[in-house]
Amino acid sequence: MPTKSARELRRLVRDLDIKILNRAEVIRADSLDTPWWRGQL
């Protein structure tokens, strides 16, 4: 990937990572049967 494109992609991914981490809540996984994927994200 060209340097400029790689830099732009890294910036976009970093910005999205920051948004996701700021919105993320702790996902409980008390046991293997916990349906963490239902409405927890």
Rank of each mutant, 00 (worst) to 15 (best):
M1H: 09
M1I: 14
M1S: 11
M1L: 14
P2M: 01
P2L: 02
P2H: 03
T3R: 06
T3L: 10
T3W: 07
K4A: 13
K4R: 09
K4Q: 10
S5N: 09
S5I: 15
A6H: 10
A6V: 15
A6Q: 15
A6P: 00
R7H: 09
R7F: 15
R7V: 15
E8K: 11
E8W: 13
E8F: 12
E8S: 06
E8Y: 08
E8Q: 09
L9E: 05
L9M: 05
L9Y: 10
L9K: 06
L9I: 10
R10G: 01
R10H: 12
R10V: 03
R11S: 09
R11L: 02
R11K: 13
R11G: 04
R11F: 07
L12S: 14
L12I: 12
L12N: 13
L12F: 13
L12V: 11
L12D: 14
L12T: 12
V13H: 04
V13D: 00
R14E: 01
R14V: 01
R14A: 04
D15I: 05
L16V: 10
L16R: 13
L16G: 04
L16Y: 07
D17P: 03
D17C: 14
D17S: 15
I18P: 01
I18R: 01
I18T: 09
I18V: 11
I18Q: 06
K19A: 08
K19W: 00
K19S: 08
K19H: 02
K19N: 05
I20M: 06
I20S: 05
I20Y: 05
I20Q: 07
I20G: 02
L21R: 11
L21Q: 11
L21V: 04
L21K: 12
L21W: 00
N22A: 11
N22M: 05
R23W: 04
A24R: 04
A24Q: 06
A24Y: 05
A24F: 01
A24N: 09
E25V: 13
E25M: 10
V26R: 10
V26K: 13
V26W: 05
V26E: 11
I27A: 06
I27Q: 01
R28Q: 10
R28L: 12
R28I: 10
R28S: 12
A29D: 07
A29I: 12
A29G: 14
D30H: 08
D30T: 04
D30C: 03
D30M: 06
S31V: 02
S31I: 00
S31W: 05
S31K: 01
S31P: 02
L32A: 13
L32M: 09
D33M: 09
D33Q: 14
D33N: 14
D33R: 08
D33S: 13
D33Y: 00
T34I: 00
T34Y: 09
P35Q: 03
P35L: 00
P35E: 03
P35T: 00
P35M: 05
W36I: 03
W36S: 03
W36F: 06
W36R: 00
W36T: 01
W36Q: 02
W36M: 02
W37Q: 07
W37D: 12
W37I: 02
W37E: 09
W37V: 06
R38H: 14
R38T: 12
R38Q: 14
R38N: 13
R38L: 13
G39H: 05
Q40N: 02
Q40V: 04
Q40Y: 04
Q40I: 03
L41Y: 14
L41Q: 04
L41C: 08
L41M: 11
